[in-house]
Design a protein around this nucleic acid. Structure first.
Lengths: 224, 224
DNA sequence: AGGGTTCAGTCAACATTGTTGACAATGATG
DNA sequence: CATCATTGTCAACAATGTTGACTGAACCCT
């Protein structure tokens, strides 16, 4: 069942399936951007008629949900919980982020969706189980789970959207550096003075920093 | 000039301006959803030809940036820094979130954009100034600013997108409650047991909780 | 004032998009 | 063999962002 040996189903017109289509979508989005994720281009890549996709997904929305679930599944591949609850939570968050950012153009569209499918369920269960074993009560565990999961999804989707935008209109990416350097120093002294340091902070560092802040706050709330 | 008392939605066809158009966009998105934000519907609401908008914005993207800047401007209206740096930072983050969520359909599209315009500059300057006065060094201030600003933008954009989606396909909103309740208890014991508590956590609580976690972590890093 | 230039709004048109309904091939089932 | 559901194909529709040509008014410089 788990599609491990992905042979070469590409190029042949016939033999479509949800898996093959999702594969093509990821490839297409990576190569040509998220805006290339149209039925006609997907069909062209698969050598099939665009409307053939409607036999497998009733909607573009349903296709997007399948893409989202695929990303969550990628995040959990080969995952195993460790002895430290804090490291395990951190690992889950980092894995989710990494899996999403492996396909930024898709992540920008999918991070905000709730798939309520298999992989998402597994992710939730693993996190809740980890928190319960760490000693948190049931309500606290739910609270903290949502804080961590939403933090990961929101921040990752944000970064993915920025990256997606940046590849097309690079103005946004460089805007951080340029705009602050051009800031009039009399009205915005701190912004102008910090212009040099601003672009030096990558989204990756920024995320790791905030995640540590969050985990410190969680640890301080550990009962007992 | 500045039409303050813009009561009647349909006005005279002539006399367009960036401000009037932005007003119409906010109103239209609030009433008819973000997907209604098309040139033809905006023009119809203003009683003008759709293509007339191109005389004021060269692009739909440029229109979106103007909307984003408007939201940031709303966030800073009547703001005044307080004596406590922590309360001031928190106030800025909460204000930003509130201004964005006042127009969720717009926020879902605008939260991810960097406008590098007047209001955004003011927001940055205020935050950096507050952190410097609190005693943080220049590099730390920049680091913490980006963590807080990205946290606010990402989380708010995430919530706004969820709310925007939920109004159209309510399945996603209720999914939290329904999906976890239907979770098979043998495979997902924690998820099933927490099904009752899950929907009880509003996005508002969730955000406030995570923000406090973040601020606690920041406070622990205060030098001296 | 008069002539020229720019601005602001209008109209028709084009390429793309998601989506639908009718039709054809194919394989399983009775 | 006949029947039926599945899967892919074709043509078409409404809606979207965007462009270029055209029009009328306002403004500026002699």
């Amino acid at each position: 069942m788990a599609g491990t040996g992905t042979s070469a189903p590409r190029q042949r017109a016939k033999g479509l399936s949800r898996e093959v289509i999702v594969d093509a979508c990821l490839q297409l989005a990576d190569e040509a951007g998220g805006s290339a994720l149209t039925f006609r281009r997907i069909g062209q890549l698969l050598g099939a008629d665009p409307t053939a996709l409607y036999r497998h997904f009733k909607d573009k929305d349903e296709l997007l949900l399948a893409l989202a679930d695929r990303l969550i599944g990628d995040a959990l591949r080969d995952f195993e919980p460790g002895p430290s609850w804090r490291d395990t939570i951190k690992d889950l968050v980092v894995r989710g982020r990494r899996a999403y950012l492996a396909h930024p153009q898709v992540a920008a569209l999918a991070a905000v969706r709730v798939t309520r499918q298999e992989s998402e369920m597994q992710f939730i269960e693993t996190m809740l189980s980890t928190l319960r074993q760490a000693g948190f009560g049931r309500d606290d565990a739910v609270r903290i789970y949502r804080a961590c999961a939403d933090f990961m999804l929101a921040w990752t989707g944000f970064g993915a959207a920025l990256k997606s935008l940046g590849e097309k209109s690079e103005a946004d990416n460089r805007a951080w550096a340029e705009a602050y350097a051009q800031a009039p120093a009399d009205r915005f002294p701190n912004a102008a003075a910090s212009a040099a340091a601003m672009p030096g902070i990558s989204d990756e560092e920024n995320f790791a920093f905030a995640l540590d802040l969050l985990l410190d706050g969680i640890e301080a709330r550990l009962p007992g």
